[in-house]
Design a protein around this nucleic acid. Structure first.
Length: 488
RNA sequence: GGUUCUGUGGCCGAGAGGCUAGGCUCAGCUCUGCAAAAGCUGCUACACCGGUUCGAAUCCGGUCGGAACCUCCA
């Protein structure tokens, strides 16, 4: 089998993926900050990495997938001032900060379950790893790459840069980075303009606070990922992922913190997923153009014509490569919906396909092409193109326009199970009550039989009426050579 | 302003120096009592201007759009 090739942000090249300790793979993805509802853009990242996780599992790797929950230490600005996001929200909603955390963590899990994502192996929280973070800060201080000022600890970027390449992940030089920042004010505690906080002194009104060697305070945003990835995956691990927006600041600082501690690059492959846009502009919390998943499912949003099922949205996302921006529109979503339904319908057709003693299509070749697509940096959009080739083959075989042997039919089933369900993580949306389903099937058999009798007796008025009434009820009749079938 | 990325047919989106994905839409055909479904066929595109090359949508230079990051954000 051909090797898996992935695009590494660190080198800006596609590279062959070779885990450090096969068959084990360490995967860390930056999770959400749970102070508000996740919007669809956030979901795209987690759905993309779910696909990547699923494919690694499919290839037989034993993956430890760590995705954190940020529930502390996230300030309004990255200038290490302003309110803690949780405290601010807590004040607004008159709740304890941990009530905020609980509420939005549960909401996050609910949403991801709708999108059929697999849970990570470990989902650590920042508040649960305060001592690990303090230990790490102590190490950085001991190595002389951080300094304490009035109870706050800062990372010394310029000093670090003498030994390491700070702008490595974004391919930028320190001087360029410095140009982009403002001058320090007279009251600033920082030595350098790029310095960032590792530990922040609590103000009298700060609710979420912990004791530390530097007094009461709370951790900076970036240190949690360094501390938790190290704890569960080791000093150096295989894959670190996140949204592209985290690349320049958060991930750059993560690398710096880890290297300042143990003088080794923490991550072998950095993967970044691209943004979801609305009318060409990035969906983000601050821009206020975000959709909540629930609004999308129900269609209850001024930009939406109607609702779209979670699996339609997932399929829509899978049609685009994870490193491309994806623009959101009703038209695009409706196109995906039809394509998705056709893909799922053909699976049902496949399950009842009659075998021939010869095959007119090379299914093995199709399977290889599916692997080739995925092995080329998880190219789901090419994969889906090949899957639609399978759709065409299945439907043609069903129309008796081409032949398939039983082993080819079985191989097609395997392709569907492996790629559509396991890797892309799609599933049939009609999760009904089986008792009702059985009853409905019997009723429909009866109705279709009635209609067939009407047709045989040339009572087209009645047969058309049955068809139209059923359609009005949301059931579509499909007349084939071998009789009629139906779908909701 | 700096750093990147990007500009593909009616729409969405892959690909990437010659073999010119795929989905949706539209038109025609087959099938059908008529439809629908399904299949087949057609619409053959790569912002613009130069250059390299036997050959460029794909490489290089420029022009003009668009976006991201540099400030919290997946």
């Amino acid at each position: 089998m051909q090797p898996l090739i992935i695009y590494n942000t660190l080198t800006r090249k596609k590279e062959e993926f070779t885990p450090m300790n096969p068959p084990f793979v360490g995967l860390y993805v930056c999770g959400p900050t749970v102070y508000s509802d996740v919007h669809l853009g956030n979901c795209r990242t987690f759905i993309s990495f779910d696909m990547i996780y699923r494919y690694l599992l499919h290839l037989g790797y034993k993956v430890r997938y760590v995705r954190n929950i940020t529930d502390a230490g996230h300030l309004e600005g990255d200038r290490d001032e302003g309110d803690d996001k949780f405290a601010k929200k807590a004040k607004l909603e008159q709740l304890e900060p941990m009530e905020i955390v609980q509420k939005y963590t549960l909401g996050f899990h609910d949403v991801l379950r709708e999108f059929n994502t697999l849970p990570p192996s470990i989902e650590p929280t920042a508040t649960g790893h305060i001592s690990e973070q303090i230990e790490m800060i102590k190490e950085i201080l001991a190595n002389g790459l951080a300094y304490e000022k009035n109870g706050t600890v800062y990372f010394d970027v310029e000093k670090y840069s003498k030994e390491f390449n700070y702008g490595q992940l974004t391919n930028r030089k320190l001087e360029e980075l410095l140009e982009g920042t403002r001058e320090l004010g007279g009251q600033d505690e920082k030595h350098g303009r790029l310095d960032f906080a590792l530990w922040i002194k609590a103000k009298p009104e700060t609710l979420m606070r912990w004791n530390s060697p530097w007094g009461w305070g709370f951790p900076g945003w970036h240190i949690e990922c360094s501390a938790m990835s190290r704890k569960y995956l080791g000093d150096t691990f295989d894959i670190h992922g996140g949204g592209m927006d985290l690349q320049a600041t958060h991930h750059t600082n993560e690398i710096a913190q880890s290297q300042a501690c143990y003088h080794k690059a923490p991550v072998k492959y950095w993967l970044h997923t691209n943004m979801l846009t609305v009318n060409g502009t990035r969906m983000s919390k601050s821009a206020g153009n975000g959709f909540l998943p629930q609004e999308l499912f129900t269609g209850n949003h001024k930009l939406l014509e109607r609702g779209y099922a979670p699996m339609v949205v997932r399929f829509f996302m899978m049609q685009t490569h994870y490193r491309s921006t994806l623009d959101f529109s009703n038209e695009a979503l409706q196109a995906s919906e039809k394509g998705f339904e056709r893909l799922m319908e053909s699976y049902k057709t496949l399950l009842s396909l009659q075998a021939s003693d010869k095959s007119d299509e090379n299914i093995k070749d199709l399977q290889n092409k599916c692997y080739e697509a995925m092995n080329d940096d998880f190219n789901t959009s090419i994969l889906i193109a090949h899957l639609f080739d399978a759709v065409r083959i299945i439907n043609s075989a069903n129309d008796k326009k081409l032949n398939l042997t039983q082993s080819d039919i079985d191989l097609l089933k395997k392709i569907y199970n492996d790629f559509v369900f396991d890797v892309l993580g799609l599933k049939q949306d009609d999760v009904g009550n089986s008792k009702l389903d059985t009853a409905l099937n019997k009723v429909m058999d009866f109705v279709l039989d009635m209609r067939q009798k009407a047709k045989t007796g040339k009572d087209f008025k009645l047969s058309d009426e049955i068809r139209d009434k059923l359609l009005a009820a949301g059931i579509q009749i499909k007349d084939g050579k071998e009789g009629s079938t139906w779908k909701i």
